[in-house]
Design a protein around this nucleic acid. Structure first.
Lengths: 145, 145
DNA sequence: ACTTGACCTAAAGTCAGGTTTATGTATTAC
DNA sequence: GTAATACATAAACCTGACTTTAGGTCAAGT
């Protein structure tokens, strides 16, 4: 069992955020001891799920919906499975997009390194759009596709 | 040269968002023809950079800062290089985090598939935390590390 | 001529996701 | 006994990133 302060340190989240999540109903199982929140393994796991659903772009109210389903037991297994299947696709798409963004960023790193070396962007401009060094060309093409 | 409507379709962004970006100073080079915005290749590339910096978590005002640097020419190459190096680290960290979240989501997909098959969560509970099927155990361990 | 559609601005409005403030309680440290 | 620390609540406040509204210009089609 943990206090809100301990959980705040464990997850590196402000106490105010944890209380806000609680108010929004994200810890439907949480117990209290004379008014004080008691976070158990149950809530720790809930927080891991919250972070994961948040990372997938889900809104707080939809995370609450999931918590509500979890309280309803076996009859909502299918809904919960569908939710995670959908989040899986969203996260996979997001990773793919970030990889593309990363290639753009890597290209720009090379771009400015080269501009610093040359003192100007003229040499680079002359190589655009398809006469870049092979590995850089790949980054550029991927970032501009 | 493109109109705001064409750019809106190209990037799948609302016209209002493009005008908002312009108001925030993200297209410092943009020309106008009797009041009407003319997006050139320059602005198209700016927008690609905007999307990439946004994806890396940069705020609009910091993207404007970058655009201001770009207007100042060669003297800000180093600042711009440092910015992209920093964004690179942020994006790499974000991809790593999303991969972890993805493992949690995959674990949960298996969890509910199994719960649906079994009609309850008892069998799964009995396998936790370290007697899961090998491939699932890997997902679980990664998601809980 | 007049309607339609695409553009324009300035200003107000919206929304999610917290954070801060003001006030109070309960336990521990000296 | 009193000061510090950690907890509590309700309600107000804040921020970033848009979006909507209200009003206007301008060119093309019928």
């Amino acid at each position: 069992m943990y206090t809100i302060g301990q959980i705040s340190e464990m997850f590196n989240l402000p106490i105010s955020t944890l209380r806000y999540y609680d108010m929004e109903g994200l810890f439907p199982q949480m117990q209290r001891q004379s008014g004080i929140r008691k976070f158990s393994e149950n809530e720790v796991e809930a927080l891991r799920v919250i972070e994961c659903l948040k990372a997938s772009g889900l809104e707080i109210k939809d995370i609450k919906q999931f918590m509500d389903w979890a309280m309803q037991g076996a009859e909502t297994y299918e809904k919960r499975r569908e939710l995670f299947e959908a989040r899986r696709e969203v996260i996979e798409a997001e990773i793919a997009n970030l990889k593309k963004m990363l290639d753009m960023v890597k290209f720009k790193c090379w771009y400015y390194e080269t501009a610093i070396k040359d003192g100007n962007e003229d040499g680079i401009s002359a190589m655009l759009p398809d006469k870049l060094p092979k590995d850089i060309q790949e980054l550029y093409d991927n970032a501009h596709s």
